[in-house]
């Protein structure tokens, strides 16, 4: 897309810097941490011990991890130049609707495609470890998504800009200032295009990233469905989930 007159190259460079800095500062694990932990796997005994936990205990554990990750994502959003200029209603809508998407993008940094494992609580876990959740379809969808996204081999810069672009989706329901968000998202996408152009792979790689959006949305919806079902079966446990988790994924 041509650069609109209102958006100078300087502005695009500024947003790239802001988003990338924000991503690096708010990643739970640095690339060095991930390299160091790459071969730290759950033993078969440890996997079995997770599998024999009750659904309530395993859900609680996952809810706590997701909540921790959300706090970092809120901080990521806050540090994106322009996000805090939006009204607080829109900031909350964007975070509620987009934090799971950003979490999924961030997850692919912590995914090892060689052995199909994902970093969970300090060690790499296979999908079978999450059996006690009783959500095999959701777990496989998350692992498949991480596998497919990691195939694109995004750089940290690209991942940062893609996360910001997804977070700043102007099509979320109940937003007040759609135009302002669209402008900000356009700027982020232009920043992403600029980064990709430097690599000489622009259109193809961007198209691959954007093609993952429907899968992301379907995983987010599946997570909400599973949570609602869990809430029906175990209302007391669901009530003890971290308040931030309940706030973000509440109806």
């Amino acid at each position: 897309n041509p650069v609109p007159e209102s958006c100078s190259l300087l502005e695009i460079e500024h947003i790239i810097q802001s988003v990338v800095k924000s991503h690096i500062e708010t990643s739970q694990y640095s690339t060095e941490d991930l390299k160091r932990l790459a071969w730290s796997l759950y033993s078969p005994e440890e996997t079995r011990s997770h599998q024999t936990k009750s659904a309530e205990v395993m859900w609680q554990q996952c809810a706590i991890h997701i909540t921790n990750a959300i706090q970092y994502i809120v901080e990521f959003a806050k540090r994106i130049s322009g996000f805090m200029d939006l009204c607080q209603n829109d900031q909350i809508i964007l975070l509620k609707a987009g934090c799971m998407d950003v979490l999924l993008i961030r997850m692919c940094r912590a995914f090892n495609p060689i052995n199909n494992t994902l970093l969970f609580d300090g060690k790499f876990a296979s999908p079978q470890l999450f059996k006690a959740l009783g959500c095999d379809d959701l777990v496989s969808a998350v692992f498949d998504f991480a596998k497919n996204l990691s195939r694109i081999q995004m750089s940290e810069e690209e991942m940062a800009l893609f996360s910001a672009a997804v977070l700043l989706s102007p099509d979320r329901q109940w937003l007040t200032d759609v135009q302002k968000i669209r402008k900000l998202q356009d700027k982020v996408y232009m920043g992403l295009q600029r980064c990709l152009q430097k690599e000489g792979v622009s259109d193809e790689k961007l198209a691959k990233m954007v093609s993952k959006l429907p899968a992301m949305r379907s995983i987010c919806n599946l997570h909400i469905d599973k949570l609602e079902f869990f809430r029906l079966v175990h209302p007391e446990t669901a009530f003890t989930f971290p308040p931030l988790y309940r706030e973000v994924f509440g109806s």
């Binding site: 706090q71 970092y72 901080e75 806050k78 805090m84 607080q88 909350i92 931030l244 706030e247």
Partner: peptide, 20 residues
């Protein structure tokens, strides 16, 4: 506002509750 109390707080805090 009450419904999103924690998100409001996190957004208003100049420092994050997480150890960044």
């Amino acid at each position: 506002k009450e419904k999103h109390k924690i998100l409001h707080q996190l957004l208003q805090n100049s420092t994050s509750p997480v150890d960044l």
